[in-house]
């Protein structure tokens, strides 16, 4: 046997894992892994650009097929940011975790980016998000953008509530999950519903003369005896209060 023919026989098969690595590295497939959350185990998908979706174990497969449809490979998230995933889920904000929102429109992306700024333990109405993204009349469009949030929990769409104050619907398994999450974060959803029933949308502080969303940290820090209730920004303004600069409840100036 010549050296040349021996060399020709030195080829075997492609080791397992290489094709998958290529599919993940090119983005032709996405990776998925399981993580714990306040709502039990969830499935997180990712590609080289960041986390692309999060869903409950039950809903994941059907919704993935309908929305993205790319092949999926069980994998570990990229080392550079894998450790940020549990933290982002727990804190309800992306923080240092890169997110890939290429599956949604520019408008939806701006709504989700704004949603991600709502602090833990606080809620904002859909109308507030609409105003903040400079589309004050697009409240319904904001509602459907939030409902199609591909990365719930990490982009905290559970902190966006109906403009009348009711906590509203939730795509990650229904309103009871939204209730549970808000409770977990200390936002007291029962009290929110109660305020809504009484037509209370805003709270003013008589010492500072500033009005806020009821869950704003400045309200929670105030003495209850100093608080007054308003049903609208107009009413608050008429009574001489100005809008809080942190939770920005007032009309866009």
């Amino acid at each position: 046997m010549t050296v040349e023919s021996q060399l020709e026989s030195l080829i075997g098969s492609l080791p397992g894992g290489v094709s998958e690595g290529v599919a993940l590295g090119t983005g032709l497939a996405e990776g998925y892994d399981f993580y714990p959350s306040a709502l039990g185990q969830v499935v997180v998908t990712f590609n080289p650009n960041g986390v692309s979706s999060l869903d409950t174990v039950d809903l994941f497969e059907d919704r993935w097929a309908a929305r993205i449809g790319k092949p999926l490979i069980r994998a570990e998230a990229p080392q550079a940011w894998a450790s940020h995933i549990p933290e982002a889920i727990e804190r309800g904000t992306p923080g240092k975790l890169p997110v890939d929102l290429s599956s949604v429109t520019d408008f939806q992306r701006s709504v989700l980016a704004k949603t991600a700024t709502i602090p833990r333990g606080e809620v904002r109405p859909y109308g507030w998000v609409a105003k903040e993204v400079e589309r004050p009349k697009a409240v319904r469009a904001v509602g459907s953008a939030v409902a199609r949030n591909p990365i719930p929990l990490i982009i905290p769409c559970h902190r966006v509530v109906r403009t009348d104050g009711h906590i509203g619907n939730y795509s990650l398994g229904g309103p009871h999950n939204k209730h549970e999450l808000l409770e977990y974060e200390g936002a007291d959803p029962d009290q929110l519903e109660m305020l809504a029933a009484q037509n209370i949308r805003l709270n003013g502080n008589t010492t500072t003369g500033i009005y806020c969303h009821p869950t704003c940290r400045h309200v929670r820090r105030s003495r209850e005896s100093n608080l007054v209730a308003f049903s609208s920004t107009e009413q608050a303004a008429e009574e001489g209060f100005r809008a809080c600069k942190d939770c920005r409840p007032g009309p866009k100036t």
Binding site: I11, G12, L14, V18, V22
Partner: peptide, 11 residues
């Protein structure tokens, strides 16, 4: 990948 992978890898 299927067609060229084995040759590329073993080379």
């Amino acid at each position: 990948v299927d067609e060229m992978g084995p040759r590329l890898f073993w080379g």
